[in-house]
Design a protein around this nucleic acid. Structure first.
Lengths: 349, 349
DNA sequence: CCTAGCATCTGCAACGTTTCAGAAGCGCCC
DNA sequence: GGGCGCTTCTGAAACGTTGCAGATGCTAGG
């Protein structure tokens, strides 16, 4: 009601009522510390003066707890949420935050040069999503003394993390194709470094991939390959950036000239791009070409894609819980399981 | 390096170096206020003591700016991000935040009874997404003196808002069906109140809908209907909750018993559910049934759905800009345009 | 040689809370 | 009537910054 020159504060209310600020504070935080009558009068005066309760920032300074955790993505936010898998993980994190009555702050990535927001975000901890192993933001968070949990990448010992059995899942995907008799197989990969490079990734690049999650996936494919006594270096790994369905389309356009009988796509979005490209080329799936994805997103399911399922929601939720349950920072849990889901995009060679 | 009993602070560093705290502060915030040499020494000592720079919370208290805006949804976060339209809007908001180098805090909705986080979130302003006109959180934000911008609902004069021409879009959708000769048309609606009710919504309920955006959509359908001289109250408006594709399926399952020739779905997710139900019933679209959606989401496009496009990204970005550009709170911009996109889910009756 | 001006640095007072060790008043019991 | 314990309230000291009005010393100009 009364909107003075300056917004009302605890002291304002205290003075108006002739009591001490501590009393006003108690009225809000410890009702048992003052008589019901006085408390009512405090609240009434507060209402009259337009005082909306203790200032959250000052309270935070005092308490040392912001009541929010942060979520950091490798790419700009508006791009990250283009990826259905990232959104699923976000939902998991959000669900855990809701359960703990804690805010979730998306920490934007700024254009290079700008002072990083990871250094100044008002959070009690950070979930890092798919950051490369050597990312600066991990270091900055550490320096601030913020608890950190990584998802997908980087993995321990670089950072405490919630991991998924990417390697096992990828191995199962590759073995599935091998079991179906495929030998001329190509891989469609998302970025294996943050340099925006595109092309057929040589072995050195595959191994130097700083994104731990996808490096594991590639390693899983290779496991299966070598277990079958085949030469992994003969497999074409076609890398495209930036990430997305279009990347899959473009990779496949080039790849299909080799007439592979099957494609291992490192994610469902890429795989859906491959399906597009195949259709454009008049190839039937799975008759002429088998395709396997990774992630098991809803649109992959709708498209009948054979893929590797991982528990996206649980992954995000586990990361948030790790931050929220044990403030000290808990030990990393065992890898979450992956599972091959066979649908209609794969058939015998 | 040195990890004392307590984390280093500005005063710690100052004392260690025998200078005043102000000097340390200046070393970080106003390099021109001290000699390059001293500054270097300050930074070095800070590094040695493991001081990571000014504490964001204290800085915030001093400055009165948190450097983040909040985003509030009507439903729990993990549910909201189930809606592709909500994610698109989120992307728009996030993009604007990135451009302004500002964090984006998702403010969870807590189970009833818990103290609302809108009252304590560390933000400089709030974007309210699809809140009912009488939502408490709008009031709480106001009391805190936080700038607020609503998206979709509530609309001015209840709150400054970014609005979309929902009514015009809906009108175009309905007219499209009328032009194709459809007269036996039914509507599939999302929740028209927060009570979880399901059924055929009577006129009173349609008009009392506290969600301004969807009320406008219904009004748009009715506009077209009445302009054609038809009786709106004869149109069955089938409401389902909670929101989602399954809601569309269930509504359609009941609705199709009436043998309508067309369905107006108030969103694409609902429309996709209607397509499912139609397929399950053996109805061909658009041969036996025409379906129009609203939103123009990617999966709607993929499904060939005729729908009403709205600029989701721009909607979110505009809301954030309104909060960030003019701290005082700018005037609401004119409604953003909608556009009927005719695809293959509609045909002559 | 005096002074104005500049470059550097310092102290103090906020910013708005919360906490904690009391103090004051009062009733009760032995 | 003295001591004890309880309830209710107060004062002062943090929490970690930053802005502002100086203080200090040094240089250049007259």
């Amino acid at each position: 009601m009364a909107d003075g020159a300056r917004r009302a504060t605890m002291t304002t209310v205290a003075r108006a009522l002739g009591v001490s600020p501590s009393t006003v504070s108690n009225a809000y935080n410890r009702p048992d510390q003052l008589s019901a009558d006085l408390r009512a009068r405090v609240l009434a005066t507060a209402a009259r003066l337009g005082y909306a309760g203790p200032d959250p920032v000052a309270r935070t300074l005092r308490h040392g707890r912001t009541g929010a955790i942060g979520l950091v993505y490798d790419e700009p936010l508006s791009f990250s949420f283009t990826d259905p898998a990232a959104v699923l993980c976000l939902r998991g994190v959000a669900a855990a935050c809701e359960r703990h009555a804690v805010g979730l702050t998306l920490v934007p990535r700024l254009p290079a040069g700008a002072p990083d927001l990871v250094g100044t975000a008002l959070v009690d901890g950070l979930v890092l999503y798919c950051l490369p192993a050597d990312d600066d933001r991990l270091r900055v968070a550490r320096e601030r003394g913020l608890p950190v949990v990584a998802v997908d990448s980087p993995r321990p010992p670089l950072a405490p993390a919630v991991t998924v059995d990417d390697r096992g899942g990828a191995r199962a995907a590759a073995r599935h194709l091998l079991d179906l008799g495929h030998r001329r197989v190509a891989v469609v990969a998302e970025r294996l470094a943050a340099d925006g490079w595109e092309g057929t990734a040589p072995r050195a690049r595959q191994d130097a991939n700083p994104y731990d999650g996808t490096r594991e996936r590639l390693a899983g494919y290779r496991d299966a390959w070598e277990a079958a006594g085949l030469d992994w270096d003969a497999v074409r790994v076609e890398e495209r950036a930036p990430y997305g369905r279009d990347a899959g389309r473009r990779a496949a356009r080039d790849l299909l000239a080799d007439r592979p009988t099957a494609v291992l796509a490192m994610s469902d979005e890429l795989a859906l791009g491959v399906l597009d490209a195949a259709a454009a080329r008049g190839l039937r799936v799975p008759g002429d070409l088998s395709v396997v994805g990774f992630d098991d997103t809803p649109s992959a399911a709708a498209a009948g894609l054979t893929t590797v399922a991982q528990p996206h929601l649980e992954k995000g939720a586990a990361a948030a819980r790790l931050l929220l349950d044990l403030p000290g920072g808990a030990a990393a849990p065992p890898p979450l399981p992956t599972r091959l889901v066979v649908r209609t995009s794969t058939a015998a060679s």
